[in-house]
Amino acid sequence: MVRILVVDDHVVVRSGLIMLLHGKNDMQVVGEAAEGDEAVSKAEELHPDVVLMDLSMPHGKDGLTATAELKKRLPDTAILILTMHDDEEYLFRAIHAGASGYILKSAPHEELLTAIRQISGGNAYLSPTATKRLMSDYLDKMKNGEHAGTYESLSDREKEILAKVAQGYSNKEIAEQLIISVKTVESHKSNLMEKLDLRTRPALVKFAMKKGLLNFE
């Protein structure tokens, strides 16, 4: 049974979603909220499996801010953005905030149900329109020579720092070896992890191992 929290500032929309979901034997609506602050509070209280999150809520915290905060407090809760915004800027910001899925309010009911089931199982879901936008953005970057998410996208200095971080050197030790400031090391480290979409040191070490960068000689 997928436990769901519905978040939208329009009562009619919330009621419609709740009616739709109540009719499914594998889903249960455990709560509802009208804005971001209430959503965070209700989620901490109810621990839903999935939060259906609207983006534009003029009163209180907006959906993107609430999504980012929820992922910090309840990392195991999947968040599905349900919005009228068919806009790549909102899409990218939602993914960056930690959303597991992005779907338009104009989507068919069956697509919404599929999205909920997908993200409740630990998968991601993007509407066909969102997927097309992501692919278009990726292809544009490739045409411009930006190999996002690859080792080749790093600068020579970033590659150097990647290897040393993976080998276990501290920021201070790297700074001394390369004769640069600790702040510069931290900046390069942050940039390279963002480019490679890596969030932890173990993930960075694993990536470096695959690239054969762990040479301690």
Rank of each mutant, 00 (worst) to 15 (best):
A175F: 09
Q177S: 13
T150D: 06
V185Q: 07
K183G: 08
P202L: 03
M193A: 07
L162F: 08
K189S: 02
H188N: 09
E152A: 12
S190M: 07
G212Q: 10
E160T: 14
E152I: 03
N171M: 04
A166Q: 08
G212H: 05
Q177N: 15
K210D: 12
D156I: 13
V182K: 15
F207G: 07
L204M: 13
L196C: 05
V165D: 02
E160S: 09
S153A: 15
K164L: 15
A163N: 00
D140C: 02
Q167G: 09
A166P: 11
A163I: 07
S155L: 12
A208P: 09
L204G: 01
I161S: 01
I180P: 07
L139I: 14
K183R: 12
K210H: 02
A175V: 15
I180F: 00
K210A: 11
K195Q: 03
A208C: 01
L198S: 01
A208F: 04
N144R: 15
S187Y: 13
H147C: 00
L204N: 04
G168I: 11
E194N: 07
E173Y: 09
T200V: 03
N191W: 02
R199S: 12
K211P: 01
R201L: 15
K211I: 03
V205W: 05
A208L: 02
G168L: 12
T150P: 06
A148I: 13
